[in-house]
Design a protein around this nucleic acid. Structure first.
Lengths: 182, 182
DNA sequence: CTGTAATTTCAGAAAATACTGAAATTACAG
DNA sequence: CTGTAATTTCAGTATTTTCTGAAATTACAG
């Protein structure tokens, strides 16, 4: 049904729908989010349902999901009884939230499972090997998580500078080598 | 029917099945991969089908998928007519492959879509705003991609040192700040 | 070649997921 | 309170994805 959308916005919305379905978030929720992000003004559920041609109830569930991910926030507009929703104005804030939420949902449970399996003592050499692999995975995931959490601490301004640095980013990691003494 | 697996390995396999379904790779393929990774010796399709209770054809499709992700490699065992499969011995190699493949499948198409939409000239102020957001997204994604590609260049040994550094990892990023002149 | 073992393909069954419309609930203006 | 607008819930339907078994193909020992 998709009413009102210009081809450009339409394309972007559709693309994020497709991509969304490759992440946890499903196709329609992906479309809804793109629509909200690309729109300067906050949108209400009816706007979304109309623009994308979804049922009102589907939009309601999508909003619930986006709220649970903390990707949108509710706001009341003066003189409006309906509830409006908008995305953070800063894309880096969006990305940070996404990273954070995915960590909670995907990484943390895995770390916890691995930890639990690692405290058991191996019953045979097969389990011994398996535990070794699990130990390596646990270490690696923990380290990568640490890295990303450090990066997440950067605010938008710092990130901007980093961006300016462009492909010289390698230098940062070269310095790391020095720090590591090699 | 899951024959032969010890409870420890069983649990791990099941967990990666669940997690797998949250990534692109589906539940059974996730289980298959965990099984291969945790097993010292290469496995053949029948081993996998028996251990996990899947149909032989499902295993065949799963193997095909894991090969297309380059997460396993085919090998022939001496005196064996059947084909055997194994995962890289180094978990960091596995992670690098995963990151790389996900980039190809999820990030690159998005960057390309955004780029295409950004070369159009905005038809109105609504599109102007939308394009601004798209531009920010494009920049951000490109930068994060650059970062991860730098990290991916590290080999296992260097990564090990980094790992030893533990939570002092923050220092690396502090140095970055100096580099950025603030 | 021939026969058999191993693997792949694929149409359709089964399962999981997403979506809708109707009914219920909530929110609030008057 | 009352009535109406807005939102949510949820049972059922539709769609998509996954999985299987049977048939086809491929690989290779003899």
């Amino acid at each position: 049904m998709t009413k009102n959308l210009t081809p450009m916005i339409q394309s972007c919305v559709m693309h994020f729908g497709e991509m969304g379905s490759r992440w946890g978030i499903n196709r329609t929720v992906g479309q809804m989010y793109a629509l909200i992000v690309l729109n300067k003004e906050p949108l209400c559920a009816d706007d979304i349902a109309e623009a994308l041609g979804f049922s009102r109830s589907n939009v309601s569930m999508g909003i619930k999901e986006l709220l649970s991910w903390e990707l949108i926030k509710l706001q009341h507009l003066p003189g409006e009884r309906r509830e409006f929703y908008s995305a953070p104005g800063d894309v880096w804030d969006i990305a940070k939230t996404l990273i954070e939420q995915r960590r909670k949902r995907e990484i943390d449970p895995t770390l916890s499972t691995l930890r639990n399996l690692l405290i058991e003592s191996p019953a045979n050499s097969e389990e011994e090997y398996a535990q070794q692999r699990m130990r390596e995975m646990h270490e690696l995931i923990e380290m990568l998580t640490l890295w990303t959490s450090e990066i997440q601490r950067l605010d938008s301004a710092k990130l901007g500078k980093l961006l300016k640095l462009g492909s010289n980013i390698g230098k940062v990691l070269d310095m790391k080598d020095k720090l590591l003494g090699r």
